[in-house]
Nucleic acid binder design. Structure first.
Lengths: 174, 174, 174, 174
DNA sequence: GATGAATGAGGATTCATTCAT
DNA sequence: TATGAATGAATCCTCATTCAT
């Protein structure tokens, strides 16, 4: 059996991803992780702290999954297509829950700098991910923007339609 | 003095826009609207109900402001530019609070169909807004997607940088 | 049946007097007052607030009891003796719980100015009470100091011995 | 580096004196003493136990300081004055925190005999301290009572005014 | 002799909502 | 129609203590 801390993180990952930040209480986390309340607060001094941990774990998980998913592709264009297909894959896997980072962005007070920074860094890395695939920075930003809206729109409409449309657009751009 | 219902709606508009849905309690609303609690529940049978009302009011407000902002422009291209400038205008006015609809999308449980529909309709109208400006549906969707990410990214980074970049991209597209 | 607010105050009075401030939880208060938790927070925005209310009620109660107890005496000297006898009376009635004000002084953080002021005012009133009984301010302060230690010592030793000694001392002073 | 037990006692001394009993958690003590939790419970089977130890240490410290402070005086009267000056000295040193013993008396449940006895013994020793300075037992008790209220009043008002007044009173008594 | 991970009962407070008037 | 008192479940968090190693 994994350690309490590991169980907390695993449970948090699952619940924050599925239900979001505000809808998930500490009580539910410790109940499902089968951990004492005080154990929880030994590892995370606040829910905000846990949120940061979650976002870090999610960051690693998400980029690893993305890179694994894209790894079989050799050309830039097919890497791009695979990146968008990754969104479709994740939507199916996670039931169109959208981007955990943007979701939490909407859930926290605007002055929560600590969490904001983590979210910003995640998106900076994503923007970098595209810029490293090609030389034209304007183009990579263009694709980044389409990628971002693809996530949101598919979350909102619980449909991959606009992801497919983005793919089509990009095909024509390159 | 406006009626209780009007005062509730005005206060809700202000608070939901500024603080978000979950961070705004019923108590704060009725206190600032100077309305009795039971009066509140006479007009809105739940907070969810109020949310729907808010989104409807916000929808009208937002589109009216957008259209007013763009109305002075005659050509399609300048209308598009003005639309993105509207985002910059709103960011300044509302302190980079982003899109109320997408924010609430992240704040509610995924199974809240009632609210979801209202948000979807808002975005359908927005997508239509662009498609009515031009014949090429692929192009209008393309612009719609850039518009959506422009909102989000400027909220996240509290900066209009990517709005400007989207404008540049669109200039080159057309 | 008294109103919830009255029941809260009555219960608080009883519990704070008997158990002290920190040892009395909100839960116990609302349970014994038979009041809903939210009702409590409707009337008192915090436990600190309740404490201030308690001290005010206690202040009135204590001085009224004191004055009532002393009222039958005509001469200064016998009024003084009665004042000290009042301590004996209260010790018996409240089981040597000492002074609620001084007890709470020890229980709160030193920087809690709000509560501190209430305690200070209570003691200023007591000091005034003695100074109004006689012309010699030094003498009245002298007696005030003996009165204060009488309270404390009888609380500490659960005995009225030093109250009696103070009475004897004062008899010789005057 | 001192032993764990010594570090615990030193830290406890500092924190209990500064913050009081209830406001000081075991966690803070072991953290600042740099000691493992289980080590703590090896030396002290409960917080109550630690409290007793603290009071004993404080007792020795306080009387040693008092005697040192007074030692240079030869006459009874000047010894008394020095004793009261010691309170002023301590108030300045410890920021008007009052008497640790009386503070804890207010913080513990009334039925805690174990701690109560320690506090009583401390005060008995203090009463003895004065009675050993002079033959008249009534007078020494009188001074003891003024001493006690001097501590309390200066704690309450964060002022040495009433200590000075007590000194003046005593000067006239002798 | 010394450790630190793990505990569960309890702390104060806020929430959206309903009731009797 | 309009009120405001009253509700109870839920929130995040802290406490002193014990356990196996």
């Amino acid at each position: 059996m994994p350690s309490p801390k590991e169980r907390i993180i695993a449970t948090t990952f699952e619940l924050f991803t599925k239900q979001g930040y505000n809808s998930t209480g500490i009580n539910q986390i410790i109940a499902e992780a089968n951990v004492a309340k005080a154990s929880f607060y030994q590892y995370f001094k606040s829910k905000e702290d846990l949120c940061v941990e979650f976002l870090n774990v999610r960051h690693d998980y998400w980029f690893n999954e993305l890179k694994r998913f894209v790894s079989k592709e050799k050309e830039v264009k097919s890497k791009l297509m695979a990146s968008f297909d990754f969104l479709i894959y994740m939507n199916q896997k996670e039931n169109f829950r959208g981007c955990s980072f943007l979701n939490i962005l909407s859930e926290i007070p605007t002055d929560n700098v600590k969490i904001l920074k983590v979210i910003q860094n995640h998106k900076k890395d994503l923007r970098n991910y595209f810029s490293e695939l090609m030389e034209d920075k304007d183009l990579s930003d263009h694709i980044y923007l389409l990628f971002e809206s693809s996530i949101i729109e598919s979350q909102l409409f619980k449909s991959n339609e606009l992801i497919e449309k983005a793919k089509k657009i990009i095909t024509q751009l390159i």
